[in-house]
Write a protein that binds this DNA or RNA. Sequence first.
DNA 1: TTCTTCATCCTTGCATGGTAGCATTTTAAT
DNA 2: ATTAAAATGCTACCATGCAAGGATGAAGAA
Lengths: 225, 225
Amino acid sequence: MHKDRTHVQLSARDKMYEHIKNRIINLDYEPGEKISEKDVALHYNVSKTPVREAFLKLAEEELIKIYPQRYTAVSKIDLDLVEEGRFLRENIECAIVKEACNKLNDDYFMHFELNLKLQQFCIEKGSYQELFGLDEEFHRLLFEMCNKLRIWKLMRSMNSHFDRLRVLRLASNHDWKILFDQHTRIFDNISSGQPEKAEKVMLDHLNLVHFETKELKEQYLDYFE
Amino acid sequence: MHKDRTHVQLSARDKMYEHIKNRIINLDYEPGEKISEKDVALHYNVSKTPVREAFLKLAEEELIKIYPQRYTAVSKIDLDLVEEGRFLRENIECAIVKEACNKLNDDYFMHFELNLKLQQFCIEKGSYQELFGLDEEFHRLLFEMCNKLRIWKLMRSMNSHFDRLRVLRLASNHDWKILFDQHTRIFDNISSGQPEKAEKVMLDHLNLVHFETKELKEQYLDYFE
DNA sequence: TTCTTCATCCTTGCATGGTAGCATTTTAAT
DNA sequence: ATTAAAATGCTACCATGCAAGGATGAAGAA
């Protein structure tokens, strides 16, 4: 038997990365706020090394900006970066959904069916937190099916600034029923092998989350670049 | 006068990253070869820290694989990853070239004209090394014009495995004249505002570099995943 | 011979302290 | 009072040593 031992044990560095990233995205560390290796290390009771390594990774994603020998600060929300993320997602995900039409098999069919059932269940129950996760999972599955998980990962990493926007408008006016409906139609078009229709629904779907950035920027001016 | 002080001085970490990455892409460190923080640090006469930090970044790009507490090895060429890179590039760059039609201004017009003139010059002179750089620059300019340099960077980082393939077939049978011709037609279509035509040429252009991966894999079996 | 155990030698992970360089404050000179 | 220079304190950068854990091979038992 082949023992995969898929690293259940996360390294201190990875844990720090996850913690800090979550705090940034949840605006717990505010955009523009200074953070230091030393303070964070003390706060989490680890040495500076894993914190520093997490910082470097976060700096790669532009979630923080390191000014060498001076200080490090949480990046303000950069609408140009948000736009780049949107552009990337729109173009890639529309291409993915077309390719997905040729990749669907029984195994993934079941995965999608289960996912959609769970979405429906969550809507009825009103568990929007879990629904959010299922939404992510639905899209991730499309990439996994096409053997494009690395692109998914890259795309997600580029959307961290967008994620902070999402947190800003707490009173999320998502109409989950519409999202679910679109998911269903995307899946139906894939399973019936209609790539053009699937792409069209996906385009509508992705444009649904475009929202009032202008108002948010006026309201939280300090948080923006 | 505003003094930008754009860090002419690279950190030891960044230097190590560049050095190691170049050695990997030029197959100086062979696919599958073990490398250790300590050895590399000794070789370059720096401490383990900057080497380790460079390793972490390279591991992010999947150019090396770190097995914690065991060893680190240069990743073998992964054709799945090459395919993901190709997919990303094809879809994004076709979208970019369409957007570029709306973004061209006098400034960039001159940049492109100069770039193409230089390409022509290099072909006549036979300086294929420089021509390669100008090719990169041509494509980068398209992204820069569209305010999408981050996507360019991501895309490039995903194509490192592909770059190693390029090194493998040293006797590059590029027909540079055709590439130049396509560059010219892309630019002409952009400047005359014909996005569909520009996209079509770009698609042909990107497909031109598809080559005999199968033969290469048979010849250098050990270098592949 | 073959298998098991255990000691040794690797590796990377992490902790710690000193260094270099920027910023701010204090000091001193005009 | 103003300005310049020096001292101080802060930061991230880097060097180094130890710790944790897998790999290897020798030694001993079956």
